[in-house]
Design a protein around this nucleic acid. Structure first.
Lengths: 291, 291
DNA sequence: GAATTTATCTGACCTAGGTCAGATAATATG
DNA sequence: CATATTATCTGACCTAGGTCAGATAAATTC
């Protein structure tokens, strides 16, 4: 039974603006107005180009200029001309700025931690927060290349194997499967792609190359909270683009009929079902696509 | 596997301040500063006492005064002296004010609706929002009396029956159970209590009286998203308080061993297990408490 | 009944945030 | 090369939000 969806959504909005708003305005508390703190934070997040910060924070150029100046006067930031374009400027932290940013980070982490500690069933709460954040941030999910050995990549692979164990009737043991060597999923042989939603990995796919004209798609996984937003399609598309760059002419993949969403995706995006091409015990469907 | 809880929480905070912040500042859009709109909204939510609004919005008395004045000048609000206390003032809507508040409500509803419509699996999203809102709003859950025929009460009872169907081995059919007459759960014979979390009912309990010195506790239910916050204990405590007001000396209840949390609650709050006192097919445990 | 407390109002003042119209210099376009 | 366009900066100006010190009047306490 649905008890007034709009009312429930608005209750949610009220609850978070009360609690989380406090987390946002907590940028106060170090004797600096919110605007300056936000710029400091944007720089800390790796945005150095002034125009980029300005666009990200939605600021007027005049205001932006003044905020940067105040941070410079505090000795937290230095601005230098952009190497390739003399009109632009880039902002970088001084050592004091780096320390100040770290102080904000620790303050934010401590608050978040304290808030989480207050709740029983915090894993359920975190899962709910993931669902909400993935939904609200669906338009900001970005595809990026990663090393298959990175923490984020290993996290995705771990979740992927866990899901196979749950969904395959006989379970899943990665040792029995043909586990591709990591080097086959690193350029120039292949690539490993992650879908990142504001810092959280929510999907992955591997392109396992051989150095020749045939390569294989492996390990396509989307976090349950990020399904339905077209992330799989974007990951596959990005993998195909890399394959073309690496002069691959034919892509192959195998999958299991328990993975119904994946099967549907392959069938609606130009893949053609072919005969079994390996002796892996888990797959029962095989596909091919010419680039 | 937990991928950095604090990071996940902060990702959530960023996502909602982006999306939901827009919903908050949407109080703009009718040519009125946020402060005035928030006061208008507070009045619309039933807060008429000026001091009460001031405290709710956390405003300085000077600012509050000016905001009220501006709403008066717009012809949206009238202030009159408080009937019982000449220092206080109460703010009430004029007809134009009522219309303006309605306009804000419709605007907010439309935005919420549009935002929800963008998502597939919106029931999953709403459930996640309920989990988050219940957790963040746990300190604002209020117990109130209600008529067992109200929408909110019927919603709780419906969820309660659905849960029994799921949890009892043989299912549950309310027609086979001794369904108390509604009048037994209305004063002066008994009472029906709801736990409300910012407008959403998240729990209930019935006190079914006979007019005599013995009464029964029925229909204790807590919404899954609100469990672990002590709501059941508060509901039971409130029901006992009403029972004492109604001169009840002995409380009884029956329950089923599938409802483990309830059993645990009764055993740790002064209830004593007694022999079966009715022929209802579902319960297998019976308790009594002397007030 | 005098002294204190409480709720509201008023005027003076301040800061943060934001807009707008040029100025300046570098780059892109014809 | 002349002419746009772009990124930033500067000064002038404005509004919203908020603080503070009294003023006023009603209620409470002694």
């Amino acid at each position: 039974m649905q008890y007034d969806p709009v009312g429930r959504f608005r209750r949610f909005a009220r609850a978070v603006t009360m609690e989380v708003g406090a987390l946002d305005t907590s940028f106060l508390g170090r004797g600096r107005p919110l605007g300056a703190a936000r710029v400091l934070n944007a720089i800390g997040m790796g945005r150095t180009d002034v125009a980029e910060i300005r666009e990200y924070l939605g600021l007027d150029s005049g205001l932006m200029s003044r905020l940067l100046r105040s941070l410079e006067e505090e000795g937290l930031v230095r601005t230098t001309p952009h190497p390739g374009d003399g009109r632009r400027r880039v902002a970088i932290f001084t050592e004091a700025g780096q320390r100040e940013f770290q102080a904000y980070e620790e303050l934010s982490n401590a608050r978040a931690s304290a808030l989480l500690d207050r709740f029983p069933r915090s894993d359920e709460l975190l899962h709910a927060m993931d669902v909400v954040a993935s939904a609200l941030g669906r338009d900001r999910i970005a595809i990026q290349e990663a090393d298959p050995g990175d923490d984020a990549a290993r996290y995705c692979l771990g979740e992927y194997y866990a899901e196979l164990r749950r969904r395959f009737e006989k379970g899943f043991d990665v040792a029995l499967s043909r586990d591709p060597d990591a080097v086959d999923m690193v350029r120039p042989r292949g690539v490993f792609l992650l879908a990142m939603s504001d810092g959280l990995p929510v999907g992955c796919v591997g392109l396992k190359g051989t150095g020749g004209e045939v390569a294989e798609i492996k390990r396509l996984w989307i976090c349950p909270t990020a399904r339905g937003f077209g992330v799989a399609r974007r990951l596959m598309h990005a993998a195909e683009t890399v394959a073309r760059e690496l002069s691959v002419k034919t892509l192959r993949l195998d999958t299991n009929s328990a993975l119904t969403e994946a099967l549907k995706l392959y069938r609606t995006s130009g893949w053609i079902e072919i005969d079994r091409f390996n002796e892996d015990p888990y797959p029962d469907h095989f596909f091919e696509k010419h680039l």
